[in-house]
Write a protein that binds this DNA or RNA. Sequence first.
DNA 1: CGGCTCCTTGAGGTTAATCAATCCTGGTGG
DNA 2: CCACCAGGATTGATTAACCTCAAGGAGCCG
Lengths: 227, 227
Amino acid sequence: MITDILKRAPLFSSLTDDQLAKVAAIVRTQELEEETGLFVQGDAADSFYMVARGKVKIFKTLRDGRTATLRHVQPGETFGESVLFTDEYPSSAETMTDCVLIKIPTVAFRQLLLAEPEVGIALIAAMARLLVLLNQRVEELLLPVPARLARYVLDLRDSQCTMTISCKSCSGCQLPTSKRELAARLGTVPETLSRTLDRFKRSGLIALNGSNIEVLDIPGMERIAQR
Amino acid sequence: MITDILKRAPLFSSLTDDQLAKVAAIVRTQELEEETGLFVQGDAADSFYMVARGKVKIFKTLRDGRTATLRHVQPGETFGESVLFTDEYPSSAETMTDCVLIKIPTVAFRQLLLAEPEVGIALIAAMARLLVLLNQRVEELLLPVPARLARYVLDLRDSQCTMTISCKSCSGCQLPTSKRELAARLGTVPETLSRTLDRFKRSGLIALNGSNIEVLDIPGMERIAQR
DNA sequence: CGGCTCCTTGAGGTTAATCAATCCTGGTGG
DNA sequence: CCACCAGGATTGATTAACCTCAAGGAGCCG
């Protein structure tokens, strides 16, 4: 049932069944495989999205071809809301894994906003969260790479630990797909990421095998996370 | 008249007189002098603001005392909307000049949102603009300092030229208050800013005296603005 | 004419990007 | 089963950007 999927998103979780049904009536689900482009910066925009399953990367392509990752969108989150009152996407999006997405057309959603103020309020709340998150991102980029990595790992740990109840062996967190992606997300290059992870490992801050990372010294990591 | 002031904000400019009156009924104006703290990160939040006159700085204080400027808020813009559904400010705010601010209590505004869906829609549009702007900010921080400065100056030129009709001598743009502030806004230090401005000047890209800057070679600046 | 603050200039050090090579690892075909 | 290959990940050496620290100006108000 689509409404069940919608309900998992903070954006929609506060809505009544009736309101959810109205949302469900205008959306369309989409299954996409890994590395599929959704839109590129400048494309005409007629929809925004929610991630039901998988992970999506939001990024900008700089003139010189390099790419700046703005955000990794997790299941339950939405992206592209900023085109609700614009006509083109300000950045590009691509799936990082196989995905199930909910596509929400802007025209129909705008009408819904007029009819159902609560939907608008939920959207405002969701956008407010995103603003806070982006503010953090700006702040982070002013920190040196080790601090950015430490923050990322600690956040990862938080989000994955609250999910699983087993917080006693709160050990394993999965790093994103490839380390190249992680480096991009942190605003650095794979070489530097590799060296920094190595330094952490040799300082006994973390244990690492493959893409599974375990934080051994939380206070130590927190210290590094603040410059 | 307060409604006249409100109307100057993109957030409110699309509203009917009736709706504006309802907004006006819940706000309060505030006059503040230069360098007045409005709130600090973590403060309990009960209002957001619009700048009627002056300039406000939004920033985060890092643990080590340094400060990361997130945004300079111009007249007509709002800030702090993200606390509408939160209870504490995620960053700090301080006036950069003498200011007239409109203070909008969150509780009353939330009620207004329910009664007047159009107000919510206007807010969503305003937040969407802000999201795009913050995305740009993240992108910018991945660029070297000269590119960030070039972008800043070009943007400044745009915004100030569209204001004044006199675009034939589109020369002078005023840099913000102090160069220290500008350096913070660009995510660098005054020394580097000084040197970079000097380099631009010696390359014939700009002319500079005091805080008045003139762009001499627009294509040249645009080239630098992309890496 | 001091004393202030702000800006600029210079020298040195640190961080992290770049370039180039090597090392894994998993998949493939012999 | 094993040699081989391709891609990503690591490591090393070099370079460039930018921060830091320290020392001059330049204006500004007493």
